[in-house]
Amino acid sequence: MVSLYGTEIASRLLLGTARYPSPAILEEAVRRSATGIVTVSLRREMAGVKKDGDRNRGGAFFEMIRALGVRVLPNTAGCHSVEEAVLTAKMAREVFSTDWIKLEVIGHHDSLQPDVFALVEAARILIAEGFQVFPYTTEDLVVGEKLLAAGCKVLMPWCAPIGSAMGPVNPAALRAYRAAFPEVPLIVDAGIGRPSHATAVMELGYDAVLLNTAVSGAGDPAAMAEAFGQAIAAGRMAYLADPLSPRDMAVPSTPVIGKAVFDLPPDLPASTGRAVA
């Protein structure tokens, strides 16, 4: 179980809800992935929703999201400024009755890189207002420290640009990030393309993975969701099982003590002593 702001979550997959072929397929993907948390974008889906009503529940799509029976993590996707992100977070709190917010402040329209300066500022404002902030950030350690200083209890570094499907492009940085924040729940957010990418970051000790396009854009989103659920569980189990570190030399898996292997001339084919992983 991973604990996020005091809430114990069984699944280590956080699934985005955008761009599925249909809500029915989204629902099937959520079910087969066994995810416990879905993220929802308010930025565009909120277009035109009344701000005056005290019973602001959004439209039928949000009703469907609520009916999924999993926790909702609203996000500020598409926000380009502190003000926009703060406003969107407040609308999200109203619509989904949650203090959770995935905070995303985009700095560059084309690359969708987070604006980490605005991110820290928006996090500070929202935490002062009682929000529990899940910041979408880069793998920069100093930014991570500043987010923690602002009051974030979870960090969500990318592993590659949003929607790029490249997988972890800088594993060394992700490893350093994990080492720098051993006690903080870390969720890799953005850039995952395949289940093997998710397994790889889970093996590094990350607590969870957040993804959307890798599932919604797949030919069979529901099957891909299930594959990700298994891949993430496998990566976590592997991490806990303390995997081997790579080494330069072959290591025999069969004990060689007591065998004549050390006396064999080097040109003889050795039936023992092979490096079998």
């Binding site: 565009r44 889906e45 909120m46 277009a47 035109g48 929703v49 439209g59 799509f61």
Partner: peptide
Amino acid sequence: MIESETQGLVS
């Protein structure tokens, strides 16, 4: 294609 039920003007 926006999951919104508001008719309104084009944004």
